[in-house]
């Protein structure tokens, strides 16, 4: 299903999605973030600081609550995520690709029903990038494209005064069907313009990872490279890069007690971060990744080698957030290029 939507009709489409909660990028506190739309959606954002991964993988997820009265067995009450249908507008192709990676992790071998309950109710209404959103975009180096519909339910393309709107999934069709008459049929001219816009978008210069197909093997060969330590020298070991990454999925599980007698509390999942020194520390104090160089290597290798070996794709989708938001210049493109350039 492919339609045309005049830009001034966008809010009418959103209004027609009465069965859906709608979120879209909003500028607040000087940053772009996904917020409830309140009926108005403007898609003039550069990419959001936080990716939309939180819609299906929130920073905090309660698995179950527990209660134990002394002398009795504990009582567990699983908490089901609230499953309202959610349409997220303005998702950029790197983040759509991110959703595919997250789906892969959470469905591999054991299905994570907390993730899946949320994910199956989230629809991504993507917006192609006619121009790179920032100076650190490199989606084309990691198998993506600025006009990709990967992970999207709908892909919109800005054609000036109108959007070209294409359904990608059945959910996407339903979203468009709900809009009914707000859409028009694309003319031959619209289709021509779409083609041209996409071609122009693909021709925009981006940052690049050199010889990307050889990267997994080269990283494997560089595990013991002294460069890791050197490239991580400025790293302060915070969690900005991973928490803002559309594909970082690592988490911690803890019991958060709300009462000690009777014992009451929740078992909670929270985001965690491989750059924190204690992430891999054993109870004994032994730490397999003792220094920041080893931790940087883990972040990079996970994205560019391990994920590739396990699932046949780069886990990094080239959004550039970890570069832009790093306060001390750790730059994943530079790191990959530097480490791999020394390998034959």
């Amino acid at each position: 299903m492919e339609k045309i939507l005049a830009k001034n009709k966008l809010d009418d489409w959103v209004a027609a999605l009465s069965d859906w909660q709608v979120s879209a990028p909003i500028m607040e506190d000087d940053i772009w973030s996904y917020k409830a739309s309140k009926g108005k959606v403007q898609l003039e954002h550069s990419n959001t600081v936080q990716p939309p991964k939180g819609f299906s993988f929130p920073q905090r997820e309660v698995f179950f609550s527990f209660e134990q009265i002394k002398g009795q067995p504990p009582r567990l009450t699983p908490i089901q995520p609230k499953a309202a249908r959610h349409a997220v507008f303005g998702v950029r192709p790197c983040d759509g690709a991110g959703a595919v990676r997250m789906d892969t992790v959470f469905n591999d071998q054991f299905q994570d029903n907390y993730y899946q309950a949320r994910r199956s109710n989230v629809a991504y209404v993507g917006l192609a990038c006619n121009k790179p959103q920032g100076i650190n975009c490199f989606c084309q180096s990691v198998g993506g494209s600025p006009v990709s519909s990967q992970g999207m339910d709908v892909l919109m393309t800005d054609l000036g005064d109108r959007y070209y709107v294409a359904a990608v999934t059945e959910t996407g069709k339903a979203l468009m069907t709900a809009g009914g008459k707000v859409f028009g049929e694309p003319s031959a001219d619209d289709k021509k313009k779409l083609k041209q816009t996409h071609a122009d978008a693909l021709a925009q210069p981006q940052r690049a990872i050199n010889n990307v197909d050889a990267v997994p093997a080269k990283l494997k060969a560089s595990f013991d490279s002294p460069l890791w330590e050197e490239l991580a020298r400025a790293c302060i070991g915070c969690g900005a890069c991973t928490f803002l990454c559309p594909t970082c999925h690592c988490f911690d599980i803890n019991d958060e007690n709300t009462s000690s007698s009777p014992l009451r509390g929740n078992r909670v999942r929270t985001w965690d971060n491989c750059q924190f020194p204690d992430f891999t520390m054993h109870t004994s104090g032994h730490n397999p990744r003792e220094n920041q160089g080893a931790r940087l290597r883990q972040r990079v290798n996970h994205k560019f080698q391990y994920f590739h070996e396990n699932f046949g794709m780069s886990q990094c989708t080239g959004c550039g957030r970890c570069i832009t938001e790093c306060s001390v210049g750790v730059d994943i493109v530079n790191v990959v290029n530097k480490v791999t350039e020394h390998v034959g």
Partner: peptide, 10 residues
């Protein structure tokens, strides 16, 4: 295989 911390290589 989801929480991401026990990996040895891949």
């Amino acid at each position: 295989g989801k929480c991401g911390r026990c990996n040895v290589g891949k």
